[in-house]
């Protein structure tokens, strides 16, 4: 029987991602991994793309993972878990294994949106029974904050440095959640650690579908966002409440918004505490701040329409 999603019940469950890892203080990623694994009542096998999470959770001779865990090159988490899952199905067919096992791949935005997109798309199209979880912190944080295709418009990174020539990143983010849904997979969703119940329910729901599932989870990074170490949950909540990071799911092609903020706050409230957007609050860049708001509004309206028409 599934464990209830209450703090009391969850506190009795064994953590399958333990303490002692070397993720930075205040990083969103380990919290997300914990939530995903806590919500999973099955035996799990995980694959991990190269990135902060992989590097910091398996420092030689130690591991923070109390589950079978596999890492290969940067671009291959989805391909690697495809191989594991296919072999599992074969063994099951041969009667050599009888357990119900879930397969999860974790990757950051660099390893998912950029270099890993080809293998992710392949896995989604082939239809492996797996859940891919992207912890999206909006840049290559592991190698020193280089821009990725998940980096938000206007953000300052070490390879799109804000200065006299450009005011940070000039392009909007790639909408990966929708790209994944466009593979006609049974389930794609967006979540945030600030709304933990919503996040964990989505993980549970994902596991009940047979086939490829995708979850994109906002993951604050105080090193790259230039924010306070105790701000991860606050910032992810501001991200949700400004509709910069709407919480929704696309189930068999039907979009449902799972949380609508009572009062949609300006996206500037989400950006202001983050040093990576500092330059946008200078008078010369007012136009760009306005554009960021317009982009957020446009995407939010689109999403609402999509939800209303049930498509």
């Amino acid at each position: 029987m599934a464990t209830g999603l209450t703090l009391k019940e969850l506190s009795k469950k064994e953590d399958r991602f333990t303490h002692g890892h070397r993720m930075c203080a205040g990083c969103g990623a380990p919290t997300i991994v914990k939530m995903v694994l806590l919500a999973t009542d099955y035996p799990v096998i995980a694959a991990n793309a190269t990135g902060c999470l992989e590097v910091s959770s398996c420092i030689s001779e130690y591991t923070a993972w109390k589950i079978p865990w596999i890492h290969t090159a940067f671009e291959n988490a989805a391909a690697t878990i495809s191989g594991v899952e296919t072999m599992y199905r074969s063994l099951k067919k041969q009667g050599k294994i009888d357990k119900d096992v879930k397969f999860i791949a974790f990757g950051g935005d660099g390893g998912t949106y950029d270099i890993g997109l080809q293998s992710l798309s392949g896995a989604m199209e082939r239809g492996h029974d797996m859940l891919y979880v992207c912890y999206d912190n909006g840049a290559y944080m592991n190698t020193g904050i280089q821009r990725s295709s998940a980096t938000p418009l206007g953000a300052d990174t070490t390879t799109c440095p804000a200065g006299d020539i450009i005011p940070g990143k000039l392009r909007v983010r790639k909408n990966l959640t929708k790209i994944m849904a466009a593979h006609n997979i049974p389930y794609a969703a967006q979540a945030s650690p600030s709304h933990w119940m919503d996040l964990m329910k989505k993980v549970r729901k994902a596991h009940e579908f047979i086939g490829p599932k995708f979850m994109n989870i906002l993951s604050p990074c105080n090193r790259g966002w230039r924010s306070q170490t105790n701000d991860a949950i606050t910032l992810s909540r501001l991200g949700v409440n400004s509709c910069y990071w709407p919480l929704y799911e696309i189930e068999d092609g039907v979009t449902k918004i799972t949380y609508t903020p009572k009062d949609k706050i300006p996206v500037a409230d989400f950006m202001k505490p983050q040093g990576r957007f500092k330059h946008l609050f200078a008078p010369a860049n007012e136009w760009l701040l306005k554009k960021v708001q317009e982009e957020v509004d446009k995407e939010w309206e689109k999403l609402k329409k999509q939800a209303e028409c049930g498509c």
Binding site: Y113, L117, G144, S149, T158, T159, P161, G163, I165
Partner: peptide, 27 residues
């Protein structure tokens, strides 16, 4: 991006536009 060469793209992301050259971070 990949360590230990990140200073090269980081430096050139600033310097190339000044030299009227092209800097691209690929996927």
């Amino acid at each position: 991006p990949i360590t230990p060469q990140n200073e090269i793209p980081e430096y050139l992301s600033k310097r190339m536009p000044e030299a009227k050259g092209v800097f691209i971070q690929a996927e």
